[in-house]
Design a protein around this nucleic acid. Structure first.
Length: 104
DNA sequence: CCGATGACCAAAC
DNA sequence: TGTTTGGCCATCG
């Protein structure tokens, strides 16, 4: 682990169920750092761990910018669609239906 | 070693 | 009501 904070973020991301997505701010809040969404993004930027579904992490508008070093942007969308995530015509995730509520 | 930056969000003015 | 600034932690130069 690069830092205990990263570990906490990774742990939360791993708990995101298939077919759902979470925002950076949401993950930061669950980690106990509501203002640390930036660090979440940076943690995801280094998602060298294949056990971390960083493709389920999107920005507040549902933009899928994840895994630049790991996947191609369109591949992330394909993965989410395969899990049942609904995409809007503009290429963003329908957060109204697929945003993770924090529970199972 | 220190300064700047970064897949961002939310409160404040 | 919209726009601006602050903030958090780690990595890069």
């Amino acid at each position: 682990m690069s830092g205990y904070v990263f570990g906490a973020f990774y742990d939360i991301v791993r708990r995101i169920p298939a077919g759902k997505v979470a925002t950076y701010g949401q993950i930061a809040r669950l980690a106990g750092m509501p203002r640390c969404a930036r660090t979440v993004g940076y943690a995801m930027a280094g998602c060298h761990d294949s056990s971390i579904p960083c493709h389920r992490v999107v920005d507040r508008f549902g933009g899928t910018k994840a895994c630049f070093d790991t996947y191609a942007p369109r591949m992330q969308q394909a993965l989410l669609e395969a899990e049942g995530v609904i995409f809007r015509p503009d290429g963003t995730v329908d957060l109204e239906q697929c945003l993770w509520d924090g529970f199972f």
